[in-house]
Computed example of a mutant assay.
Amino acid sequence: IFSLNFTQSDPSTFILMGIPGMEDVHIWISIPYSTSYIFCLLGNFMVLFVVSKEETLQKPMYLLICMLALTDITKSSTIVPKALCIFWFNLKGITMGGCLTQIFFIHSVNFVQSGVLMLMAIDRYVAICNPLRYPTILTNARVVTLGLACLVRALLFMVPLPLTLSRLQPFCANRIIPHTYCDHMAVAKMSCGDITVNRMYGLVIVFIVLGFDLTLIALSYGLIIRAVLRIPSRKAHQKALNTCTAHICVMLMAYPIFLFSTLTYRFGQGIAPYVHIILANLYYLLLPMLNPIVYGVKTKELRDKMRKYICGMSSTGASDSEPL
């Protein structure tokens, strides 16, 4: 009651409800939330640490894995702390500025990550189809430049989004957002004005950016499959395709959930709200936690180096605990 009264007296504040219909179990939901977040941070920071320490890993493929780790850390950190405040302390208020900032970072990071996945597909294409020219085509400097280009692309596409939302003020709904974070369309639907521009812009940028990235990914893998089929040795087939396994797993986890979550919020009126919210949170929680595991398991060189540091820390801890 206090939160609702506060919201009505302060027109610059929204209320995030968490997961509607499941308020009684918010404290239990916070357990997998916080656990996933901790493992996400540990796994991704471990990847960044190992690659930065090992000169043999400072190659284009591992730089791209580091970019993916940075997007995972940023993505989950934009969502989880506020959600835990809702679950643990019932702190549901968020200012208009805070809401727009959260929307900007959420969508920007999503587009940067899509760009990184696209660059990973190109990296695999060059490594398999042009192995002799790989060191000259994809240098570390070129990969960093392409990564920055993905960042600039995301920022340019996302700057108009909070601006179009801010022009919808004043909002005439009750300023209650049935979600764990500020979603673009959830905020837009609270306006009593015309939200056609917001609805169309959100869909157009999703299809332009993701459509471009998925087209290049499909083209890269089409060329990879064609090149692999030309290799007479079955063992060589398997070795070539194994280098793509981790990337394929990450894409199969990321794109379907993101697209389903984005489209159901606009067109899935028959889907229960908590289903959409749980799916959206899986994208921001489960995937950032699983990505370093997938690359740690499927990439032998990275796996070996991570095992070396983990075993080294374990042995150090054991020796420190021995009595004098």
Rank of each mutant, 00 (worst) to 15 (best):
T7W: 08
D10F: 11
I27E: 08
P32Y: 07
S36I: 03
S36G: 08
G43C: 06
N44I: 02
F45L: 10
V47N: 01
L57P: 00
K59E: 11
P60N: 09
L68C: 07
I73Q: 02
L84P: 00
L84A: 06
C85R: 07
W88F: 14
N90P: 08
G97S: 14
G97V: 13
F105C: 08
H107N: 12
S108K: 02
V109N: 02
N110A: 10
L119T: 03
C150W: 02
C150V: 08
L151N: 05
L151D: 05
F157S: 02
M158Y: 05
M158L: 12
V159Y: 13
P160I: 04
P162R: 02
Q169N: 15
A173V: 10
A173K: 13
A173G: 13
H179Y: 13
D183Y: 07
K189G: 06
D194P: 04
I195W: 06
T196H: 15
V197L: 10
L203G: 03
L203R: 05
V204E: 10
I205V: 09
F212N: 02
I217N: 00
I224R: 00
S233W: 07
A236I: 15
N242V: 10
T243S: 11
C244T: 03
T245A: 14
A246L: 05
V250D: 00
M253Q: 07
I257S: 05
I257F: 03
F258K: 00
L263V: 05
V275Y: 08
H276Q: 11
I278K: 00
L286Q: 06
L287A: 03
I293M: 08
K298M: 12
E301I: 12
L302D: 01
L302A: 02
C311Q: 14
G317F: 06
E322H: 12
